[in-house]
């Protein structure tokens, strides 16, 4: 408990990190507002003129279908959080489990197979893999999530594996084994909690990666299938900008940039707080 307090104190002192946390929290509130049906509900109605200028009617103007860009960029916050949360939670979980098992049975065939799987997944060009998954799943809306989870766990897995191998040789684990606790209990109760900081940091990194990847995938036509996202807005805007209409592009990139910047600062602050090694050099 004491170390949690110390970490919180350290985070509090990190101005950029706190600003990042505030930004992420503000976005999260927007997402909650959308989920609750209070915000951004009017994102798909094509009522207005196309490419209208910003005004009282549509705060950021309208796109080529006459849809309200402001409504769409707010609704996309929800999309971003859905993708970010699902992908980061699942891939961190998968990485934690596979990494822990590999580390616990280090240098055995179990370890070898996990490393092999990670190596194989890392050797397949990512977008090719996503595209293949999307096709294998025949246009299912969560094909993108599956592909990201299937590849993003490898980094977490390797880190957790290394940490578990380190923890395994510590005295409290040795004594837990000596009194005959089963492996699974030791892993779940004594080993995994000690990798918490890695999981938290990795989850924040994967969150950013997932949102960035969604943009590219939506542009390639492999991303969000129904609904709207900043990626889809940017994909729309590739047509518009050549005709001189920048509202869609500016709104989506600004919303995206501020969230990613906030998350990156938060993630940095977490890394500094948990791993003072670099800061101490």
């Amino acid at each position: 408990m004491g170390s949690d307090l110390r970490l919180w104190g350290q985070l509090r002192a990190d101005k950029a990190g706190m600003a990042g946390l505030l930004v992420v929290a503000a976005y999260f509130l927007l997402a909650v507002g959308v989920w609750a049906g209070m915000l951004g509900q009017d994102w798909s109605s094509a009522g207005g003129d196309r490419w209208a200028s910003p005004g009282a009617e549509a705060w950021f103007g309208t796109n080529l279908l006459g849809q309200d860009i402001f409504q769409r960029s707010i609704y996309s916050v929800r999309t971003a959080f859905e993708i970010g949360l699902v992908v980061s939670v699942l891939s961190t979980l998968l990485g934690a489990i596979l990494g822990a098992v590999a580390g616990w049975y280090g240098k055995t065939w179990v370890d070898g197979s996990v490393l092999w799987l990670a190596g194989v997944l890392d050797s397949i060009p990512f977008y090719l893999f996503v595209a293949a998954v999307a096709f294998a799943l025949q246009g299912k809306p969560w094909a993108m999530h599956v592909a990201m989870v299937a590849t993003f766990w490898t980094g977490t897995g390797r880190l957790v594996r290394a940490e578990v191998m380190k923890i395994k040789s510590r005295e409290f684990i040795l004594s837990a084994r000596a009194i005959g606790l089963p492996d699974l209990v030791i892993l779940a109760r004594h080993v995994l909690p000690n990798t918490g900081h890695i999981l938290l940091i990795q989850a924040s990194i994967v969150f950013v990666a997932a949102i960035k990847t969604e943009v590219i995938l939506s542009f390639l036509g492999l991303g969000v299938q129904d609904g709207v996202s900043w990626g889809l807005m940017l994909a729309e805007s590739t047509q518009e900008v050549l005709a001189g209409h920048f509202n869609n592009f500016i709104a989506a990139s600004a919303m995206l940039f501020v969230l990613l910047m906030g998350f990156n600062q938060l993630s940095d602050a977490l890394q500094d707080a948990f791993d003072p090694r670099e800061a101490a050099l």
Binding site: V208, K212, V215, I216, F219, G231, L234, A235, S237, T238, V241, L242, G244, F246, F249, S253, L256, F257, L260, M261, F263, N264, Q265, D268
Partner: peptide, 24 residues
Amino acid sequence: SVTSMSISFLVVIIFLQVFLCTPY
């Protein structure tokens, strides 16, 4: 670095294309 890491690849491409390749 953090700024560069926070900007989507697609945004960079669109921006550079508009900025360097169009009458705008």
